[in-house]
């Protein structure tokens, strides 16, 4: 497994500013983001899509999030160290949200009498 795993000491050297994409790509991403946002709003207003509202919106938001992160914030081109620095806390944050929702929904389920 160790045949060609990179030593992190050199991991960053192969990237530099020259790899960054040009304005053309930025405009393309902007167009995609606009379309996705429009799609989000459409989904919100179409009554027929209510049952699948949550997954669709979540996927769209994640895609938008990923596009901005990958291209505008250059994560796609930059060192993977940055991706790690960001994605690891991000997922920990997700776990916290998830955990709290689970804990509180359980509280409400079991102890249904809430004193006003």
């Amino acid at each position: 497994m160790s045949d060609h795993a990179l030593n992190p000491a050199h991991a960053g050297h192969d990237v530099s500013h020259e790899d960054h994409p040009g304005p053309g790509l930025y405009l393309l991403i902007a167009a995609i983001l606009t379309v996705l946002t429009a799609a989000e709003i459409t989904v919100f207003y179409v009554p027929g899509l209510q049952p699948v509202l949550v997954p669709i919106l979540l996927v769209l938001a994640i895609v938008k999030f990923a596009f901005v992160g990958m291209f505008y914030m250059h994560l796609y081109y930059d060192s993977k160290v940055f991706t790690t620095l960001f994605v690891f806390p991000l997922l920990l944050a997700l776990l916290i949200v998830f955990g709290l929702l689970l804990l509180f929904s359980h509280l409400q389920g079991v102890l249904s009498f809430v004193v006003p």
Binding site: S79, L92, A93
Partner: peptide
């Protein structure tokens, strides 16, 4: 630098990671 990266940028990304937990809360 050890990673071949500018540490101001490393610092910024680490800070943004920390902000994720802030907004998650």
């Amino acid at each position: 630098s050890t990673l071949g990266l500018d540490h101001r940028k490393v610092g910024m990304w680490a800070f943004l990671g920390s902000e994720c937990v802030f907004f998650a809360s």
